[in-house]
Amino acid sequence: MTNIFNYKIINFLIILILGLQIFIYFYNQNSLTKNFSQKNITVENFSSIVLSKSGITKIGSEKLNKIDDNKIFLEGKSYLENKEYKIYGNNISINLNKEISSSEEPVKVINSMGTLNAKGFKNLDYDGKIIFFGEVEFVTNN
Protein backbone atom coordinates (compact mmCIF):
# COMPACT_ATOMS: atom_id res chain seq x y z
CA MET A 1 0.00 0.00 0.00
CA THR A 2 2.86 2.38 0.91
CA ASN A 3 4.70 1.44 -2.33
CA ILE A 4 1.65 2.26 -4.47
CA PHE A 5 1.31 5.59 -2.69
CA ASN A 6 5.02 6.37 -3.26
CA TYR A 7 4.75 5.52 -7.00
CA LYS A 8 1.78 7.85 -7.32
CA ILE A 9 3.73 10.70 -5.71
CA ILE A 10 6.77 10.05 -7.91
CA ASN A 11 4.57 9.95 -11.05
CA PHE A 12 2.87 13.17 -10.04
CA LEU A 13 6.25 14.87 -9.48
CA ILE A 14 7.55 13.63 -12.86
CA ILE A 15 4.44 14.98 -14.63
CA LEU A 16 4.77 18.30 -12.76
CA ILE A 17 8.45 18.64 -13.73
CA LEU A 18 7.69 17.78 -17.36
CA GLY A 19 4.92 20.38 -17.34
CA LEU A 20 7.30 23.02 -15.96
CA GLN A 21 9.90 22.14 -18.61
CA ILE A 22 7.31 22.53 -21.38
CA PHE A 23 6.26 25.92 -19.92
CA ILE A 24 9.89 27.11 -19.70
CA TYR A 25 10.59 25.87 -23.24
CA PHE A 26 7.68 27.82 -24.79
CA TYR A 27 8.35 30.90 -22.66
CA ASN A 28 11.99 31.04 -23.81
CA GLN A 29 11.08 30.44 -27.43
CA ASN A 30 8.65 33.42 -27.44
CA SER A 31 11.06 35.91 -25.91
CA LEU A 32 13.88 34.91 -28.24
CA THR A 33 11.71 35.48 -31.32
CA LYS A 34 10.70 38.91 -30.02
CA ASN A 35 14.27 40.00 -29.36
CA PHE A 36 15.48 38.96 -32.77
CA SER A 37 12.67 40.83 -34.56
CA GLN A 38 13.53 44.13 -32.78
CA LYS A 39 17.23 44.04 -33.67
CA ASN A 40 18.15 46.67 -31.05
CA ILE A 41 21.73 47.84 -31.34
CA THR A 42 23.49 50.28 -29.04
CA VAL A 43 26.87 51.86 -29.79
CA GLU A 44 28.76 54.27 -27.56
CA ASN A 45 30.76 57.33 -28.78
CA PHE A 46 29.35 56.90 -32.21
CA SER A 47 30.01 58.88 -35.40
CA SER A 48 29.05 58.17 -38.98
CA ILE A 49 27.98 59.78 -42.25
CA VAL A 50 24.52 59.81 -43.82
CA LEU A 51 23.77 60.58 -47.46
CA SER A 52 20.59 62.64 -47.87
CA LYS A 53 19.10 65.28 -50.15
CA SER A 54 21.26 68.04 -48.62
CA GLY A 55 24.38 65.95 -49.30
CA ILE A 56 26.65 64.17 -46.88
CA THR A 57 25.76 64.74 -43.24
CA LYS A 58 28.11 63.72 -40.47
CA ILE A 59 26.29 62.52 -37.35
CA GLY A 60 27.59 61.63 -33.94
CA SER A 61 26.57 61.14 -30.32
CA GLU A 62 27.58 59.81 -26.94
CA LYS A 63 25.35 56.81 -27.56
CA LEU A 64 23.58 55.52 -30.66
CA ASN A 65 20.41 53.43 -30.36
CA LYS A 66 19.25 51.73 -33.53
CA ILE A 67 15.49 51.35 -33.18
CA ASP A 68 14.83 49.68 -36.54
CA ASP A 69 16.22 49.75 -40.07
CA ASN A 70 15.06 53.36 -40.63
CA LYS A 71 15.07 54.94 -37.19
CA ILE A 72 18.02 55.80 -34.97
CA PHE A 73 18.17 57.72 -31.73
CA LEU A 74 21.25 59.78 -30.85
CA GLU A 75 21.35 59.72 -27.07
CA GLY A 76 23.18 62.35 -24.98
CA LYS A 77 25.26 65.09 -26.60
CA SER A 78 24.75 64.77 -30.34
CA TYR A 79 25.50 66.61 -33.56
CA LEU A 80 24.58 66.80 -37.23
CA GLU A 81 27.03 68.52 -39.58
CA ASN A 82 26.96 69.17 -43.31
CA LYS A 83 28.03 71.89 -45.74
CA GLU A 84 25.02 74.10 -44.82
CA TYR A 85 24.79 73.80 -41.04
CA LYS A 86 26.13 72.40 -37.80
CA ILE A 87 23.47 71.33 -35.29
CA TYR A 88 24.53 70.63 -31.71
CA GLY A 89 21.94 69.24 -29.30
CA ASN A 90 20.84 66.37 -27.09
CA ASN A 91 18.75 63.26 -27.73
CA ILE A 92 18.14 63.62 -31.47
CA SER A 93 15.82 61.21 -33.31
CA ILE A 94 16.55 60.48 -36.97
CA ASN A 95 14.26 58.83 -39.51
CA LEU A 96 16.59 57.88 -42.34
CA ASN A 97 13.80 56.85 -44.69
CA LYS A 98 11.78 60.08 -44.33
CA GLU A 99 14.93 62.23 -43.96
CA ILE A 100 13.62 63.85 -40.79
CA SER A 101 15.58 64.58 -37.62
CA SER A 102 14.17 66.19 -34.48
CA SER A 103 14.77 66.97 -30.85
CA GLU A 104 12.74 68.59 -28.09
CA GLU A 105 15.81 69.71 -26.20
CA PRO A 106 17.85 72.94 -26.50
CA VAL A 107 19.79 73.16 -29.71
CA LYS A 108 22.55 75.38 -31.12
CA VAL A 109 22.93 75.84 -34.86
CA ILE A 110 25.76 77.48 -36.75
CA ASN A 111 25.34 78.33 -40.42
CA SER A 112 26.81 80.83 -42.85
CA MET A 113 24.46 83.57 -41.58
CA GLY A 114 25.14 83.26 -37.86
CA THR A 115 24.44 81.34 -34.67
CA LEU A 116 20.99 80.24 -33.57
CA ASN A 117 19.72 78.97 -30.22
CA ALA A 118 16.29 77.34 -29.81
CA LYS A 119 14.37 75.04 -27.47
CA GLY A 120 14.03 72.28 -30.05
CA PHE A 121 13.96 71.56 -33.78
CA LYS A 122 12.53 69.46 -36.58
CA ASN A 123 14.71 69.14 -39.67
CA LEU A 124 12.71 68.26 -42.80
CA ASP A 125 15.76 67.52 -44.90
CA TYR A 126 13.75 66.31 -47.93
CA ASP A 127 12.03 69.73 -48.02
CA GLY A 128 15.08 71.86 -47.17
CA LYS A 129 13.37 73.27 -44.08
CA ILE A 130 14.35 73.37 -40.42
CA ILE A 131 11.69 74.42 -37.90
CA PHE A 132 12.99 75.75 -34.59
CA PHE A 133 10.60 75.73 -31.66
CA GLY A 134 10.12 77.85 -28.55
CA GLU A 135 12.00 81.07 -27.96
CA VAL A 136 14.51 81.43 -30.75
CA GLU A 137 17.47 83.78 -30.88
CA PHE A 138 19.42 84.06 -34.11
CA VAL A 139 22.49 86.32 -33.98
CA THR A 140 23.43 87.13 -37.55
CA ASN A 141 26.57 88.38 -39.29
CA ASN A 142 24.56 90.99 -41.27
Binding site: G128, F133, V136, F138
Partner: peptide, 19 residues
Protein backbone atom coordinates in the same frame (compact mmCIF):
# COMPACT_ATOMS: atom_id res chain seq x y z
CA UNK B 1 24.97 93.13 -33.22
CA UNK B 2 22.27 92.03 -35.66
CA UNK B 3 19.72 89.44 -34.64
CA UNK B 4 16.29 87.89 -35.06
CA UNK B 5 14.31 86.84 -32.00
CA UNK B 6 11.06 84.88 -32.13
CA UNK B 7 8.75 83.87 -29.29
CA UNK B 8 7.16 80.83 -30.94
CA UNK B 9 9.14 79.50 -33.88
CA UNK B 10 11.60 80.23 -36.66
CA UNK B 11 11.58 78.34 -39.96
CA UNK B 12 14.69 78.25 -42.09
CA UNK B 13 13.77 77.42 -45.69
CA UNK B 14 17.06 76.87 -47.51
CA UNK B 15 15.34 76.07 -50.84
CA UNK B 16 13.44 79.35 -50.99
CA UNK B 17 16.24 81.17 -49.12
CA UNK B 18 14.08 82.65 -46.38
CA UNK B 19 13.56 82.77 -42.63
Amino acid sequence: ESYVKAGESLIWDSENQSY
